[in-house]
Design a binder for these strands. Sequence first.
DNA 1: TAAGTGTACTAATGAGGATAGTACACTTAT
DNA 2: ATAAGTGTACTATCCTCATTAGTACACTTA
Lengths: 136, 136
Amino acid sequence: MFHIDVMSRRPVYEQLVDEVEHYILRGVLLPDQQMQSVRSLSMELAVNPNTVQKAYSELDRRGIVYAVPGRGCFISSSARERIGERMRQGLGNFTEQVYELALAGIEKETVISCVEDAFSRKGESNDTGRGLDEKI
Amino acid sequence: MFHIDVMSRRPVYEQLVDEVEHYILRGVLLPDQQMQSVRSLSMELAVNPNTVQKAYSELDRRGIVYAVPGRGCFISSSARERIGERMRQGLGNFTEQVYELALAGIEKETVISCVEDAFSRKGESNDTGRGLDEKI
DNA sequence: TAAGTGTACTAATGAGGATAGTACACTTAT
DNA sequence: ATAAGTGTACTATCCTCATTAGTACACTTA
């Protein structure tokens, strides 16, 4: 399920954190759903249990999963909100990034169309990712 | 002049590459302008000459500077274009990033206003960064 | 009772960034 | 011609940090 590149310069445990958030945003991992155990996921990814544990504890620290000793690790009900909060805090960097695009001569219309594409893709998607407070 | 954080997990030579591009985009480093020598910059940054050399050769490989053995290292006349090309190639990742913002519940208007802010900052700036083919 | 869970350690390994030092060919100013 | 400064190349070493390996404990569930 998760796509990890052990050859990447990016640490495996960070890649795993991103992957989990990725699937949460796309509605593949749902609130209160149990995740694979540390040991089984480490087997599946051909990676050391400590590496998976490091990713899980980071996700727990972020409030994206909650770990119950003896039972397992579960997706937090507010996982999507937590991810959203984190991204809102990163909007400053995002703006800075767009500023660099502007300075480099990328046209404003080009950037806008990227945004349009992204949000239209969201509209087309048939995932479980609803707007947090829409009627089910 | 350059701002380097030796404690960062990001390699110093990569930070230096980014810094040079940063100042080129902002018109501080101008085409055909001579850069500091490898040895003097390594002194100024309190860093090993090999580290600066690594950054310079990467910038040379990208066509952003050109190195003349025995004379020095100079900003390429097409530096800004080269940076722009590189950023255009990264627009796919940019769109993907915006898609994640969308999935996380960030409103489209919020993202758009970030773009507006960035491009208005460009308009307000009084740097030498003109549009590449505007009349001087 | 047994298997499975998260969690916490310590020790060892390995890759890659950074340092230290030297050397060579070139250009420029004196 | 000389000296100083330039980019470039090379080897050896150090050090940080991600990763592995192995063990152990407390807990839950069938």
